[in-house]
């Protein structure tokens, strides 16, 4: 990801769990607001219930920070309400979620190694 300096990406880390869920939902595909809420709820197995107000507050921040952008994509007008807006990740957004995933994976790996060593010592 050459377009952004590592520094620019690191500035966003760590990503809050709720934000991570939103970014993840958008990494899968472009979605409108309610679809994001549904996806987050599904993926967290009902543990995270994102409501309309908080969702848009986060979306605003993500839009302002350039991690998310509005998509021009629209389903056929007869299938969809014209007021609905769709969102997708920007390249920066993709970079941030990748970096965060890597960071968490590192943490997990570290923790597993620690566990293994402890088991070996025991």
């Amino acid at each position: 990801m050459p377009a952004f300096g590592q520094e620019a990406i690191d500035g966003f880390l760590p990503v809050k769990p709720l934000v991570y869920h939103i970014l993840l939902a958008l990494a899968e595909e472009e979605r409108h607001g309610y679809a994001i809420m549904q996806r987050v709820r599904e993926r967290s197995e009902n543990r995270l219930r994102l409501e309309t107000g908080p969702l848009y507050r986060q979306l605003k921040r993500l839009l302002d920070e350039g991690l998310v952008e509005e998509s021009e994509h629209r389903p056929a007008p007869d299938r969809d309400d014209q007021r609905r807006r769709y969102y997708r990740l920007t390249r920066l957004g993709h970079a941030v979620i990748a970096a965060e995933t890597e960071r968490m994976a590192d943490l997990v790996n570290h923790a597993r190694r620690l566990e293994d060593t402890q088991q070996a010592e025991a």
């Binding site: 607001g33 309610y34 409501e51 107000g53 848009y56 979306l59 007021r83 609905r84």
Partner: peptide
């Protein structure tokens, strides 16, 4: 400013949530 930017789409989303 927030309302103008997100009001319509929030209404839409809230409507979906309410429907569900």
């Amino acid at each position: 400013s927030f309302r103008e930017r997100f009001g319509d789409t929030m209404c839409e989303t809230f409507g979906d949530a309410l429907h569900a």
